[in-house]
């Protein structure tokens, strides 16, 4: 945020944040599985699969407070600025970096990637959904947008962490209003870095595979699940 918002707004944002966490825990008993890295406060980009509007609150709710304080989700301005409540949640509660997905709505010369890189240079960690929109297909992942590659290429030290969110599409399929109370597991995988001379497509493919392998189903030998090749 560019300027400090008024005190009552910050208090409201804090309480609202607690409310989101409580709701996530009550409905889904959401839990974090730090499978490939430790929950430490280091600058990272967390990239996750995206099937539901509740994805972001889930990751946000399972991050330990000392990490969450420094994490900013990258989110769509066209969604989060639609009304005053969403704007309050997006800006004040989640402290999101808001990006307009519609090129025609951007101001002349405005580069959304620059906002992201600015946030990184201020030391923030990010949460991003590299598929760019919610995945409504039967495929496990949609092709990734270039964002995480650009971040990793700009900052080679940056840890790019795959995060698999399980079950949310079943808890609340598209178009349904009432969630089914199932357990949601958020699995954090092994961090990636963009190699020195790695090109965009190679890295995005590697990141996509890493995310698929973070899915606990991938490690459950007995389940008949489609292997990653089948989803390509």
């Amino acid at each position: 945020m560019t300027k400090q918002s008024p005190l009552h707004r910050r208090i409201a944002a804090r309480l609202f944040g607690k409310g989101i966490q409580a709701a996530a825990h009550i409905v889904t008993a959401v839990r974090a599985d730090w499978h490939g890295c430790e929950p430490i406060d280091r600058q990272r980009v967390y990239f996750a699969n995206h099937t539901s509007n509740a994805d972001l609150p889930m990751i946000w709710a399972v991050l330990p407070p000392n990490i969450r304080r420094n994490v900013r989700p990258v989110a769509a301005a066209d969604y989060w600025l639609k009304n005053a409540l969403r704007a309050f949640i997006g800006k004040d509660v989640l402290n999101a970096v808001l990006i307009d997905r519609r090129p025609e709505a951007r101001a002349e010369g405005e580069n959304p990637m620059q906002d992201i890189l600015d946030a990184l240079s201020q030391g923030a960690s990010l949460i991003i959904f590299p598929e760019g929109l919610r995945n409504m297909t039967d495929q496990k992942l949609l092709p990734f947008k270039a964002g995480i590659y650009n971040m990793g290429a700009a900052l080679p030290e940056l840890e790019i962490v795959p995060v698999w969110i399980e079950n949310l599409n079943k808890i609340m399929p598209k178009g349904e209003v009432i969630p089914v109370p199932l357990i949601c597991t958020v699995t954090f995988g092994t961090p990636l870095h963009v190699h020195a001379d790695e090109d965009k497509d190679t890295f995005l493919e590697r990141a996509s595979q890493a995310l698929l392998q973070t899915d606990p189903d991938f490690r459950r030998p007995s389940r008949k699940i489609p292997q990653p090749e089948a989803t390509a």
């Binding site: 008993a29 839990r31 357990i183 490690r219 459950r220 030998p221 007995s222 389940r223």
Partner: peptide, 11 residues
């Protein structure tokens, strides 16, 4: 075992 998990939950 069939579902490949060790525990039913974590609470």
């Amino acid at each position: 075992r069939d579902r490949g998990i060790k525990d039913w939950g974590h609470l």
